[in-house]
Each structure stands twice: as C-alpha cells, then as structure tokens.
C-alpha cells in the first residue's frame, strides 16, 4: 500500500501532532519503510495459525474488586499544568483540573 503525503497529514492531525512540510516528507519515507516491512510479513503463509492480539501468549490476570487507592488529589494537583498567562500556579480550582473552555 502506497502512502501519500495527505495520509501523513491526516494521521498527524488525528494524533494532534503538528508537522511541517519537510517533517511530513521525512515521515512519509519512514512510514513507507514500515509499510514495506508489513507487506513482507503479510507475504508469509500463516494458514492454520490463530492470530494473536498480544505478543505474549498469556491471558489477562484479574484484580479483586477492592478499593486500594487513597485520595491523593492534593499531590496530583500540585503537578497539574501551569495556569499560563504568566502564572506558574497549577491550573486547578475547587478540586477540578482546569482546561480551556469546552463548548459542544
């Protein structure tokens, strides 16, 4: 499968990564290389082999439904991103993490 520069831009946008034209070109050649690798793997005859969804052939271990986490809000919120506009204070208020206004 051939990737185009538009594919790269779309993928970058979906991942919210800003790429310049030259970065997009560089990424295109890297990703094209990876796609080549995938094509090579797809050429292998895997008839009769059950697909795996994880590289380790193990199954999920489960946790008991018991509260083990204490309230560490104060600690966590010290580490919140800075409020900005010249303030280095963490962007929190009334226990909430503050973000730019969300409007639907």
């Amino acid at each position: 499968m051939a990737l185009s520069i538009d594919d790269i831009k779309k993928i970058a946008h979906l991942a919210r990564i800003e790429v310049s034209e030259s970065e997009a070109q560089a990424t295109l050649s890297k990703l094209t290389g990876i796609m080549g690798l995938i094509e090579q793997m797809q050429a292998v005859d895997t008839t009769g082999i059950e697909p795996m969804s994880h590289s380790q052939d193990l199954t999920q271990r489960l946790r008991d439904d018991v509260v083990t986490k204490e309230n560490l809000r104060a600690e966590f919120q010290k580490n919140a991103p800075a409020l900005g506009n010249g303030s280095n204070e963490p962007a929190v208020a009334e226990g909430l993490y503050l973000v730019p206004k969300v409007i639907e």
Binding site: D65, V66, V67, T68, K69, L72, G95, L96, Y97
Partner: peptide
C-alpha cells in the same frame, strides 16, 4: 462494582471532584 475497571479507585457516586481519581484515572 466497588472499584474502577482498571484500577482500585472507588466508584462511589457523589464524591468531591477528583478525590476518586487515582494515577490510572488521571
């Protein structure tokens, strides 16, 4: 359940904001 699907933080309704938000939740 008493706790979240992927961590041991409580799921009780009506708690103060972010007091049941552990490192996995955030």
């Amino acid at each position: 359940t008493k706790t979240k699907i992927f961590s041991g933080a409580s799921t009780a309704f009506g708690a103060e904001p972010n007091t049941q938000a552990c490192e996995v939740s955030i």
